[in-house]
């Protein structure tokens, strides 16, 4: 006698599939809970946490942004190994504008977001025509090289970096700015990817020939996706610059490349919510494991391998499944 696991959509999922969901509170709740949860959760957390953990929440949000940015690239078939490139570019741009030209954060953050995105896209556009692996290679080495170059040529403060930058007006401002950005990106990107534009992006990843054959210039679409992703990364960098009040070589460090990937992989690729979830797990974990120093990165590495090999769908898909479906064992006649 053999058994297999059967998965069936919950009744409520079917019932809330169309407009009639508006007839019942239960169904509306079923639909809105997963969407409200991150909003309310973040707001409650922002009040409930101590100042130290508020800081952690800040960096969770920043890493979540980087992970989301990684995820949208991955969904378009570009595997970035260097989110630090986006982060660092944004960070340095904001730092330079603030330090050398004296512009306030209100100006530097948006400008660094836009021009950071533009700059990184410009860097990487030639690679888009090549096999996917080139994109990974180039994104991996460019930030590592930039560090050495800043060190060697001593531009922008060299190893010292640029310090004494302007802070944001208040602690609350910092927190709510990044939370708002995170929520906007999360919901915006989910929306984007379920639109027809998103379908084209996913189509490129799946079967670029077929998309090309529809008269669509896949390179232009990839470029747009790259710009969107790198702008988000640059925003994270610019924001962090005005939190640390400092910008220097560490912004190109591997941490900013590896942790976002780990977050997306652990949380689940292709949903954005998974990336956020992953960041919420890994960043506090790494705070707790702070004492271990370099060993933290070893853990990320191991996580990456374990999840890609053993649980490639990630945690979020698992939760999603439990939420929408019931499972039971049924017997199969031999």
């Amino acid at each position: 006698m053999k058994r297999r696991r059967e998965r069936i959509d919950r009744g409520i999922k079917a019932r809330s599939g169309d407009l009639f969901a508006l007839c019942s509170w239960r169904e509306m709740l079923y639909l809105s809970t997963p969407r409200l949860l991150p909003i309310i959760g973040l707001l409650v957390l922002s009040f409930a946490l101590s100042v130290y953990w508020q800081r952690v929440l800040l960096s969770v949000s920043v890493f979540a942004l980087l992970a989301i940015s990684w995820d949208i690239l991955a969904q378009t078939g570009m595997i970035s190994l260097g989110q630090a490139l986006f982060f660092g570019t944004g960070a340095y741009l904001a730092g330079i504008m603030n330090h050398y030209w004296g512009w306030p954060p209100v100006v530097t953050i948006p400008l660094a977001t836009f021009f950071g995105g533009l700059l990184c896209t410009g860097f990487l556009v030639p690679v888009l025509r090549l096999r996917g692996i080139y994109f990974s290679m180039v994104t991996l080495i460019i930030p590592l090289m930039l560090v050495r170059i800043i060190e060697a040529t001593r531009i922008f403060g060299g190893t010292e970096g640029i310090s004494g930058l302007a802070p944001l007006p208040s602690r609350w401002m910092e927190l709510y700015l990044v939370i708002a950005a995170l929520l906007a990106t999360l919901f915006g990107f989910r929306r984007l990817m379920s639109s027809d534009f998103g379908l084209v992006l996913k189509g490129i990843n799946d079967n670029d020939r077929s998309v090309m054959n529809a008269g669509i210039n896949i390179y232009w679409f990839k470029t747009q996706s790259l710009f969107i992703a790198s702008s988000v990364g640059a925003f994270a960098g610019a924001f962090m610059t005005h939190i640390y009040l400092f910008v220097g070589m560490p912004v190109f460090a591997l941490d900013y490349s590896i942790l976002p990937i780990a977050a997306a992989v652990v949380g689940g690729i292709g949903t954005f919510a998974g990336s956020v979830l992953g960041a919420f797990i890994l960043v506090p974990l790494s705070e707790i494991l702070r004492g271990l120093g370099g060993l933290r990165i070893v853990f990320y590495g191991v996580f990456l391998v374990l999840f890609t090999v053993a649980i490639p769908e990630g945690i979020f898909h698992y939760i999603q499944r439990k939420y929408h479906q019931v499972e039971r064992w049924v017997e199969v006649e031999k």
Partner: peptide
Amino acid sequence: LSEVIATFGIGLA
């Protein structure tokens, strides 16, 4: 995607 992430993870670890 998996190949890149896994080898990168191993190297880093």
